[in-house]
Measured scan of single mutants.
Amino acid sequence: NQASVVANQLIPINTALALVMMRSEVVTPVGIPAEDIPRLVSMQVNRAVPLGTTLMPDMVKGYA
Rank of each mutant, 00 (worst) to 15 (best):
N1R: 04
N1W: 11
Q2Y: 11
Q2V: 13
Q2G: 15
A3C: 14
S4Q: 02
S4K: 01
V5C: 09
V6Q: 03
V6K: 03
V6C: 04
V6N: 01
A7Q: 02
A7S: 11
N8V: 08
N8A: 13
N8R: 12
N8W: 04
N8D: 14
Q9P: 01
L10D: 15
L10R: 10
I11K: 01
P12D: 09
I13M: 12
I13D: 11
N14P: 00
T15K: 05
A16R: 10
A16L: 13
L17T: 00
L17I: 12
L17V: 00
A18H: 11
L19F: 11
L19Q: 07
M21C: 03
M21H: 13
M22L: 14
M22Q: 02
M22W: 00
R23W: 04
R23L: 04
S24M: 10
E25L: 07
V26R: 04
V26N: 10
V27W: 03
T28E: 15
T28W: 05
P29R: 04
P29S: 03
P29A: 04
P29E: 07
P29M: 04
V30A: 12
G31I: 01
I32F: 03
I32M: 02
P33R: 08
P33T: 06
A34D: 09
E35Q: 12
E35C: 07
D36T: 07
D36Y: 12
I37V: 06
P38S: 12
P38Q: 11
P38I: 08
R39K: 14
L40R: 00
L40S: 00
V41Q: 05
V41T: 05
V41R: 05
S42A: 11
M43N: 04
M43E: 04
Q44A: 14
Q44C: 14
V45R: 00
V45C: 05
N46Y: 07
N46M: 10
N46G: 08
R47F: 06
R47V: 13
V49T: 04
V49W: 03
V49S: 02
P50H: 11
G52P: 02
T53E: 08
T53M: 12
L55P: 01
L55I: 14
L55G: 01
L55R: 00
M56P: 01
P57I: 04
P57K: 10
D58N: 10
D58V: 08
D58F: 11
M59N: 04
M59V: 07
M59K: 00
M59H: 10
V60C: 03
V60E: 01
K61C: 14
K61W: 12
Y63W: 12
Y63R: 04
Y63K: 04
A64C: 08
A64H: 12
A64N: 13
